[in-house]
Nucleic acid binder design. Sequence first.
DNA 1: GACGGAACCA
DNA 2: TGGTTCCGTC
Length: 151
Amino acid sequence: MKAGCSIVEKPEGGGGYQFPDWAYKTESSPGSRQIQLWHFILELLQKEEFRHVIAWQQGEYGEFVIKDPDEVARLWGRRKCKPQMNYDKLSRALRYYYNKRILHKTKGKRFTYKFNFNKLVMPNYPFINIRSSVNLYLVTHTHEYIYMAKI
DNA sequence: GACGGAACCA
DNA sequence: TGGTTCCGTC
């Protein structure tokens, strides 16, 4: 009996980071708990055990490098129950983020992307200060997402 | 590798 | 809506 894929796979808390329920909910589909790719990217980014796979680029704020594209794709495929996932497909999904202003490409740098933090911060939350804060709160302007990423 | 159109799916 | 799959093009 294969374990297969569960409908929702909340990351276990085991000494790590607990994501609140609302972090998985969308405005358009309240019942949906499908994790978004950029959520997943941030999730990997904040965990030290994946630093050899994906990591923040020091120096440039919000910029990250995919050090092992195959592994990131494999992990994403496992989460989404898409065993045929690869970097070619994953990167297509990342490219759709360009127009949504969630991400943009760092041209010239291989496997390097950058979060558009300036576009993600919401004016409704004046207590959020990117520069002084260790935890960065990301809020898209299109959805009710709030996310925390340790930078 | 990176890009983006196009068809398709839940 | 947010990808997934496929692919031609640079």
